[in-house]
Write a protein that binds this DNA or RNA. Structure first.
Length: 425
RNA sequence: GUGGCCGUAGAUCAGCUGGUAGAUCACCGGAUUGUGGCUCCGGUUGUCGCGGGUUCGAAUCCCGUCGGUCACCCCA
């Protein structure tokens, strides 16, 4: 303990076994829910060529401008993925998956990296689960996806949530709206916050969801994007709303919802939690349609829609509890001969699906049995030279405080029978 | 990235206005020599985040730094 200990990188956390139990429950719930909707899991590298994100997420976004873990390795610019969609699109294009099926549905789960200042619910290495659908222009999938999210939130017991919905229109309307917005904002440039003045150049749409008090007046008077979208965009949006209404899936239209990635078009949504556990980071997930992205990344003209969920945040908000621990067998061997036999017994039990712990550290029987509590053992097996000579093992039923000798040959059957008749507390 | 608050045993924390540290839990051992969880008794645990400064003397004051946290920002 004298050497200086090394600690984890700022904003990157260890997940200790106790927490991992909750993570597994969460991930299993997500996998099962998405599986029922036809999503299949895809796994892509954590590292991608830097241009992939620059081209998809977009220059001028906070993510690309200041949050990416980028580095050059052997002359190649690489980046630790800051989000999941770009990689999935890249893989979709690279493997020409559109030629194999008209519609593809993907689930991904894994770590993402953004160099932000850590806070509650915000980390530099964080985890997302996300879904992507390619080849279906909506709006039926849009509704189905949002409805799935709301259902998933309920299953995870995250409490009350709010779905914010907006439409950005297609590429054409987006550009047109951008001009209208600029025309409105330019004259009042001086009154805007510094961040927003900068965004006038880089990414004017982002000004809409600025929370700066200085910006509120300008934003309030700004033209609504929903009034700028064209007829087709509007028909898409109206149909989506009608579907959600019919499904009874609650949402709130938020014309100023913009979000931080450039590739979105038409449908845009965000799901916010109300749990006080979330602190200021209340966005549990968000996503939208990206009908031009696949083509922009060199693929076919295929539409797409997807979302990402923040696993850390879901865990903060979720009240779902991990299942009961599986009860186990603790084997306490006294002496060298017994230790060998303990390993053999453990092997037999594990082959039958029973969790077995061998107390191999020696010490007094008392100290070995003391560990029954921490491993949540239902049964302890004690064996020493006496038992070995008689060809038996002492079986202790811990809850019942009873013990008896069991013939070595019948041990596995006896333990199986014990667990079989239900010993869950 | 900006500002506020915090940083003492593995964990949660106490330690007032400066005199080199404690509680609880956990852990280890014991309560007639091979029998747990409860109880009782005993024990270990710390470069008081790190570096520097003030001082005869600092966990206690000052500066810096790192980490955490809250808000801003951003989003998941």
């Amino acid at each position: 303990m004298s050497a200086r200990a090394i600690s984890a990188v700022k904003g990157m956390n260890d997940l200790l076994p106790e927490e991992v139990e909750r993570w597994r429950v969460l991930e299993e719930t997500i996998r099962e829910t998405t599986r029922l909707h036809g999503y299949r899991e895809i796994r892509t590298p954590l590292v991608e060529p830097t241009p992939l994100f620059v081209r998809s997420v977009g220059e001028g976004t906070d993510i690309v401008d200041k949050e990416m873990y980028s580095f050059v390795f052997h002359d190649e610019p690489l980046t630790l993925r800051p989000e999941g969609t770009a990689s999935v699109v890249r893989a979709y294009v690279e493997h020409a998956l559109h030629t194999k099926e008209p519609v593809s549905r993907f689930l991904y789960v894994g770590p993402m990296f953004r160099g932000e200042r850590p806070a509650r619910g915000r980390y530099r290495q964080f985890h997302q689960a996300g879904c992507e659908v390619f080849g279906d222009p909506g709006p039926v999938v849009d509704a189905e996806m949002i409805d799935m999210l709301v259902g998933l939130m309920a299953k995870l017991e995250v409490g009350e949530v709010e779905v914010l919905l907006n439409s950005l229109g297609g590429a054409g309307t987006k550009a047109r709206y951008r001009e209208r917005l600029l025309a409105h904002l330019e004259p009042m440039k001086e009154s805007l916050s510094q961040d927003s003045q900068r965004r006038l150049e880089t990414n004017p749409l982002r000004i809409l969801d600025s929370k700066h008090p200085q910006d509120q007046e300008a934003i309030a008077g700004a033209p609504s994007i929903l009034e700028s979208i064209d007829d087709e965009d509007r028909a898409h949006f109206d149909r989506l709303r009608a579907l959600l209404d019919a499904l009874g899936t609650p949402y709130r239209v938020e014309p100023r919802l913009v979000r931080g990635l450039d590739y979105y078009s038409r449908t845009l949504f965000e799901i916010r939690g109300k749990s006080p556990e979330l602190g200021a980071q209340n966005a549990l997930g968000g996503g939208g349609r990206y009908d031009a992205l696949v083509e922009d990344l060199g693929g076919p003209k295929v539409s797409g829609i997807g979302f990402g969920l923040g696993l850390e945040r879901l865990l903060l908000a979720s009240k779902a509890k991990p299942g009961l621990r599986v009860r186990s067998v603790l084997i306490a061997p006294m002496g060298a001969r017994a230790q060998t036999e303990a390993l053999v017994i453990a092997r037999e039990l594990r082959a039958l699906g029973i969790v077995a712990h061998v107390e191999g550290r020696g010490g007094s029987l008392k100290s070995m049995l003391r560990r029954t509590a921490s491993v949540d053992a239902g049964v302890a097996l004690v064996l020493g030279d006496g038992e070995l000579d008689r060809g038996v093992v002492q079986l202790k039923e811990l809850d019942a405080h009873v013990q008896r000798d069991v013939a070595r040959a019948e041990l596995a059957a006896e333990v199986t029978r014990f667990f079989g008749r239900g010993t869950t507390p």
